[in-house]
Design a protein around this nucleic acid. Structure first.
Lengths: 252, 252
DNA sequence: TCGGATCTGTGAACTAGCTCACTCTTCCCC
DNA sequence: GGGGAAGAGTGAGCTAGTTCACAGATCCGA
């Protein structure tokens, strides 16, 4: 829903558009395309961070496994998204899992080539910074959400975000074609499978959505949006802030 | 505790060290230094993102206020830290609050100057990317933590992180000199003030820490570390992953 | 130096979400 | 096409953490 989402999606291409033909040909050469079957991990924690990936088709799941072997899903990625981009930042090994959640076609560029590209065409570096920055922003709002929204709000939000990035609207709402199990939806928002089930059941009864094992259809995104913004019952209003005019002046 | 923390701290300076003397002088000129009293906001959501800040002394609180006027603390920043860095990424207005949590001295550089600097000295841009990337990584582990750690673990973790970034060790543990209220500690980890109080009380009895209104002393960081890594009672072990050898080969 | 505001400390009651335990369905691989 | 595994659906407790409602301590500004 946020305006920047769509924008973000196109950033990757703007990134590539800054390239000269020669660079493009070079990139072509150092890039490896690969097909990955649903369920296959692309990298695991501890793996060297030597490649940056571009997702051409399919869905990628980014997740971590906590010490107690519980899985937390950090994000789903869609065609056009880049992942493993922190390889550019430093050489620290991967600290999360990237796995094909549907059959995927991905492009892998090795670290050195990307670095070289950045050096030659600073704008590419800038685009990558932008990408990482936008992810940072998204993640911040996620933290905010986790810290203070109810189960219902979190599920609603997650579904809306999926719809926004991956859904197709028609006269009857938005269709998200993704084989997303209730357990995974739970792992995405930090809820147990049972709770997710109950919530979805409730919404199904209220005609807010339909879902089967291979897709979800949001019949009333508007209503869901309302639910998503509904906070968990919370701390009483207590905002007090110095008046806006009191902010420090950037004097000389 | 993670090795990269200290490193990160120095990144800012490496960033500046890439500058020529001329650039340094220029930076000097376009930079405004300002003193900000405890409690004063530096920017608020909706403000234009036209400045990037470097914290020279004091503590900055980064937070957001949710629709229901509940406050979530995203981070505390210490001397050497940069904030407002997303101004570099795009022109979207601020989406969070930055406020002086202790009296601060900060440097403000305007967006254009920073951009120019990046254009002239790509390495600066790279350092900024690195900074944002590291923040992204930190935030990811935070999401993981919020999604699956117990109250005790979260508080312990938060305290250890504060100690790591801002504490001073001596023979009797680590001293964190920060006027941190229990309510704010709660807002940092997503717990009610009362819960935080109970936990701290418990630890006080076990001699794990001391705290008064102006500082916290961790007497047994080791034990706290253990608590921090203790997961919330959770989903049963269910990890199964294709063998590592099954990862897609980056063939030609 | 006084008075209001903010912070700490603590109990009682409530509740959202979790675990556990089970059934039924659907998928998909051999 | 048959069997085993993964998913969906549901109910009965349980419990961690919440809200609410106090009381006392301390800070800070006028």
């Amino acid at each position: 829903m946020p305006a920047h989402t769509k924008l973000w999606y196109f950033e990757q291409f703007r990134m590539l558009s800054a390239l000269s033909d020669a660079q493009r040909r070079h990139l072509e050469k150092v890039t490896r395309m690969l097909e990955v079957k649903r369920g296959t991990p692309i990298y695991l924690p501890g793996d060297p961070s030597d490649l940056v990936y571009l997702l051409k088709s399919g869905v990628i799941k980014i997740s971590t496994t906590t010490p107690d072997r519980r899985e937390v899903i950090l994000a789903f990625l869609y065609p056009g998204d880049i992942f493993g981009e922190l390889a550019v930042v430093d050489e620290a090994p991967r600290d999360h899992v990237a796995e094909a959640y549907e059959d995927c076609v991905i492009c892998a560029m090795n670290r050195e080539s990307v670095m070289r590209l950045i050096r030659e065409t600073p704008d590419v570096g800038f685009q990558i910074t932008k990408l990482i920055g936008l992810r940072l922003r998204t993640l911040r709002s996620r933290v905010e959400e986790l810290l203070c929204k109810s189960a219902h709000a979190r599920v609603a939000h997650a579904l809306l975000e999926l719809a926004d990035r991956h859904g197709v609207s028609d006269t009857d709402g938005v269709l998200i074609s993704l084989r997303l199990s209730q357990r995974d939806l739970g792992r995405l928002v930090g809820l147990s499978r049972e709770t997710v089930n109950a919530i979805l059941q409730e919404w199904r009864e209220q005609q807010l959505l339909e879902m089967d094992r291979r897709s979800v259809r949001l019949r009333d995104p508007e209503r869901l949006r309302q639910i998503a913004s509904h906070p968990a019952p919370g701390e009483p209003p207590a905002a007090r802030h110095a008046d806006r005019t009191e902010r420090p002046k950037t004097g000389t």
